[in-house]
């Protein structure tokens, strides 16, 4: 069935469009949260604090990973399977590094007496945890997708059916990257 369903002459592949619309809804979720953040910030009991330095490093890491996944797409299109797999793996590893850095960042905050949850917590810290934590969950979803694609590509003989999955993954990955940049700028300077 799957082949007949996608028989019409579409300019953009339906799965890509599905993804784009899905990204729109993720944007709305973070728009909701960051708006709530602004509203809350203008009210009493707001604790001012600095973002952990580790977040700067993780920003750098995720920026690099956008570059590596773009290389993976390029290699998949060129049919250079070994390099394609290499770039995929590097991207996944950078993703994991980002996760670790973020979690360490939260720990650093807690250590410097900014309680994120619990009775001593202030909603400034809690917001930071929820917003960046949700972003982290989305990124973990991306890492899982990358791992699945890598495993599948290991079994594949040609790269022709690899292009769509990695293109989808790359779109998502760039999105999660951009989302982080937005959040980083927002939390640091705007909000």
């Amino acid at each position: 069935m799957a082949t007949t369903i996608i028989e019409s002459k579409n300019k953009i592949h339906p799965y890509k469009m599905l993804l784009w619309v899905g990204l729109g809804s993720i944007v709305m979720m973070f728009a909701g949260l960051t708006s709530a953040y602004i509203v809350k910030k203008s009210q009493a009991n707001w604790l001012e604090f600095e973002l952990p330095k580790l977040f700067y490093i993780s920003t750098l890491v995720i920026l690099i990973s956008s570059f590596t996944i773009q290389m993976a797409v390029k290699k998949a299109k060129a049919g250079e399977l070994a390099q394609y797999r290499g770039f995929l793996s590097v991207t996944a590893i950078l993703g994991l590094a980002f996760v670790i850095l973020q979690v360490r960042g939260f720990q650093a905050l807690e250590a410097s007496n900014v309680a994120l949850t619990g009775a001593r917590s202030n909603s400034a810290g809690s917001f930071l945890l929820v917003i960046t934590g949700l972003h982290l969950l989305h990124l973990v979803g991306g890492v899982i997708a990358l791992v699945v694609i890598s495993l599948r590509s290991a079994a594949a003989k040609s790269s022709s059916n690899q292009v769509l999955p990695v293109e989808l993954a790359a779109t998502y990955w760039h999105f999660v990257d951009l989302l982080w940049i937005y959040l980083f700028v927002f939390l640091n300077w705007v909000g």
Binding site: V21, G22, G24, S25, I26, M28, M29, F30, A31, G32, L33, A36, K40, N45, T117, G118, A119, S121, N122, S123, S126, F127, V130, L134
Partner: peptide, 25 residues
């Protein structure tokens, strides 16, 4: 639906934190 349900979801996540993790949203 695609543009508004995620906002409800974000509101409910904050609610879960208030219920279970002692936050003050």
């Amino acid at each position: 639906g695609v543009l508004s349900f995620p906002v409800l979801l974000s509101g409910m996540i904050l609610l879960i934190f208030d219920r279970n993790f002692g936050t003050s949203f």
